[in-house]
Design a protein around this nucleic acid. Structure first.
Lengths: 231, 231
DNA sequence: AAGTGGTCTAGACCACGCG
DNA sequence: GCGTGGTCTAGACCACTTG
């Protein structure tokens, strides 16, 4: 209501100038000081607006060089990564969890390499299934680094999924996500009630606690799965 | 070097307290005023650190109620969405573009519905291929709303891809992305040199200019494609 | 060397939402 | 109502780059 000069107002006005091509791609826009005077706001306020637009990819800013309208709006998309359980319950479906196997094994070469672990590392492999309204929703194949999370040796994962257990017991500081399409192998096909070779949507996540790898998880969905965002 | 009290320092210290479980999930943490005194910083500085952690999903903040450590770190991932050309050139590969077809057609029901358009809307359909080092990289199937971008009627798209043309001529304010896995149809399989039914990674994007739909594009990649982010 | 963005401070007022 | 976060201001100094 009060329409006080807000960083939102300023941000949106500048976005409009870019959208309406009053500020053309590649050109320099006025400096913060000038804009602050124009909008009748403090420089810090203008700065906040400019920073948001820069993070959105609409502007490129460099010290001394000034701020210019991005030539190619390399925009970013933000995806929310919830727990499977929440994802399913948010759809209004009934969530179920089924443990398939839990083994303490010597690390396969590929997994070791992905996690950057030496040969003596011990890992737990947990395979499980998440269901929505009794239909298979996600097959989870997870590796947990026992050196990083020794208490995982005592966890059974029979009623609580490794995902939720880890949230409670093993904090992380860094994560990397990968998304890809693949063909279901025999195992995955059977579990997800697909035919072998059917396309599946795969998400992989590795998490670290200050450089030490915690867990690697592969999450396999039927191809009906969609990951949506709006910017 | 100078290790002045920076919002980064404060942010990282607070992230550490959460990771090390000195601040437990679900509990209230001290107020901004208190933290500012503790860190010897201004409240605005602490505020910025707290806001970043909240946006990352580690904290939940509510007026009057205070700030608490999130129970379920519903974290978000940010993906950069570049132009295909940039994506390919960033890999050090040679980019090539090939126009397959360009038709002004009455809108198919499905496309109209996706864009929320009435029956009289006219669209251009452009199909093209993006290659990296002479190998098919992405098949693009695009619909452009001529009511929103009338000048597209004159565009040939023979040497410039619709993507780049639109960047230059049709600004947008909103976008929605969807990612999914699918089986290649005969068309896609032939173009991407895959066998029919092979899994493909599909990205779809719709863009609007202040509510008016501009374009809908379907981008199909071979299953070797990976979309990676780190948080 | 100088100009531009990056950040910090101290103080202030506002707005939301719990009690 | 009132305490907490949300934002704004005015001023200052710093850091990075480019000419």
């Amino acid at each position: 209501m009060s329409e006080r000069t807000s960083f939102r107002t300023i941000r949106d006005e500048m976005a409009r100038r870019i959208a309406e091509r009053r500020w053309l791609p590649g050109t320099l826009i006025p400096g913060e000081e000038t804009l602050a005077r124009e909008f009748g706001a403090a420089r810090a306020t203008v700065n906040r607006a400019l920073q948001e637009l820069a993070r959105a990819g609409l502007l490129e800013r460099r010290r001394r060089a000034g701020t210019r309208v991005a030539l190619h709006p390399v925009r970013e998309a933000r995806f929310v990564i919830p727990l499977v359980r929440q994802e399913i319950e948010a759809k209004g479906a009934v969530y179920q969890y089924r443990l398939l196997s839990r083994e303490e094994v010597g690390p396969p070469e590929i997994i070791r390499a992905r996690l950057g672990l030496g040969g003596r590392a011990t890992l737990i492999n947990v395979r499980c299934l998440h269901l929505a309204d009794r239909a298979p929703y996600q097959f989870e194949d997870r590796w947990i680094n026992l050196d990083a999370v020794p208490s995982a040796r005592e966890a059974e994962f029979e009623s609580m999924s490794p995902n939720e257990w880890l949230v409670k017991h093993a904090p992380f500081t860094d994560a990397e996500f990968t998304f890809l399409a693949a063909a279901a192998n025999a195992d995955e096909a059977a579990l997800l009630q697909l035919s072998e070779g059917a396309p599946v949507f795969v998400g992989e996540r590795i998490t670290w606690l200050r450089g030490q790898p915690i867990t690697l998880v592969r999450m396999v969905h039927p191809s009906s799965h969609r990951m949506v965002t709006s910017l």
